[in-house]
Simulated assay, not measured.
Amino acid sequence: MLAWEGIGDADGNPIEPSPEAIDALLDVWPIFEAFQLSYVSKGLLLEQEKNASALSPNGPSAGASDTAKPAHPTRAASKPARTARRG
């Protein structure tokens, strides 16, 4: 935090932001809650959106095609799978 308005000492004199002043201010529950709702929660929502699994319309998954052939229901039901060889 580089600057703020309306923050002062017990006598009403403006004070500059400092790590100690910010900690003291955030110890006041209504101020902490307002800061949390206004800034922190928005950042968390943006971070959560980045973790989605949707395909990118213009990124590396754009124009991607399937590489596996579709399963054929009658063939799969008529032949059991072979046992894998031990290696």
Score class of each variant (00 low, 15 high):
residue 14 P to E: 04
residue 25 L to E: 00
residue 21 A to P: 01
residue 7 I to S: 03
residue 28 V to N: 10
residue 26 L to T: 03
residue 49 E to V: 04
residue 52 A to N: 15
residue 21 A to N: 13
residue 13 N to I: 09
residue 55 L to K: 15
residue 12 G to D: 06
residue 41 S to A: 13
residue 39 Y to Q: 10
residue 56 S to Q: 14
residue 48 Q to W: 11
residue 32 F to R: 14
residue 15 I to Y: 04
residue 10 A to M: 08
residue 45 L to E: 13
residue 57 P to R: 12
residue 19 P to S: 07
residue 60 P to L: 14
residue 20 E to Y: 02
residue 40 V to T: 10
residue 33 E to Y: 12
residue 62 A to T: 08
residue 35 F to M: 06
residue 12 G to C: 04
residue 50 K to I: 01
residue 13 N to C: 11
residue 58 N to W: 08
residue 46 L to A: 14
residue 34 A to V: 06
residue 42 K to N: 04
residue 57 P to Y: 06
residue 31 I to G: 01
residue 38 S to V: 00
residue 19 P to L: 05
residue 15 I to D: 07
residue 59 G to Q: 09
residue 9 D to K: 03
residue 49 E to L: 08
residue 55 L to D: 14
residue 30 P to V: 01
residue 16 E to Y: 03
residue 23 D to A: 15
residue 37 L to P: 00
residue 26 L to W: 03
residue 62 A to W: 12
residue 37 L to S: 12
residue 55 L to F: 13
residue 11 D to F: 11
residue 59 G to E: 08
residue 48 Q to I: 06
residue 16 E to A: 12
residue 14 P to L: 03
residue 44 L to S: 03
residue 41 S to W: 00
residue 31 I to C: 05
residue 25 L to K: 02
residue 42 K to F: 05
residue 45 L to P: 00
residue 37 L to R: 14
residue 15 I to N: 04
residue 15 I to P: 02
residue 32 F to Y: 13
residue 58 N to E: 13
residue 54 A to P: 00
residue 56 S to C: 10
residue 27 D to S: 11
residue 61 S to M: 12
residue 40 V to D: 01
residue 23 D to H: 11
residue 27 D to W: 01
residue 57 P to S: 09
residue 55 L to W: 12
residue 19 P to F: 03
residue 40 V to H: 10
